[in-house]
C-alpha cells in the first residue's frame, strides 16, 4: 500500500516499541497481535531500523498480511493485518 493510503488507515491497535532494540519490537508485535481479531489492523512504532525487514519476514511466516511502512521524523510505523 502507498504511504498516503496507509496514513488514512485507522489502526485497531497501536504498539509503541520505540526505544527498544532487537528483538524488542518483534516481541511487542507478537504480544499485541494476540489481542486482535482476524482482519484487524495493527500499527507498530519502532525506531529500530532492522524492524523494517524483520516484521515483513515475520508476517510472511505467521500468515499475517504486511501492509507497509510509513516513515516519521525519528521513527516509523509498520502496518499489518492479522490473519
Amino acid at each position: 500500500m502507498s504511504t498516503a493510503e496507509l496514513t488514512r488507515i485507522k489502526s485497531d491497535k497501536v504498539v509503541d516499541a520505540r526505544g527498544t532494540a532487537c528483538p524488542g519490537p518483534l516481541l511487542a508485535a507478537k504480544k499485541a497481535i494476540g489481542e486482535l481479531e482476524t482482519g484487524q489492523v495493527m500499527e507498530v512504532y519502532s525506531s529500530d531500523e532492522g524492524t523494517k525487514v524483520d516484521i515483513p519476514k515475520w508476517c510472511g511466516k505467521m500468515g499475517h498480511e504486511y501492509m507497509g511502512v510509513v516513515d516519521s521524523d525519528s521513527y516509523f510505523s509498520v502496518f499489518l493485518k492479522k490473519a
Partner: peptide
C-alpha cells in the same frame, strides 16, 4: 537468548 526469543515470537 535473542535467537531464542525471536523463535518464540515465531510461535
Amino acid at each position: 537468548m535473542i535467537i531464542a526469543l525471536g523463535a518464540a515470537a515465531y510461535d
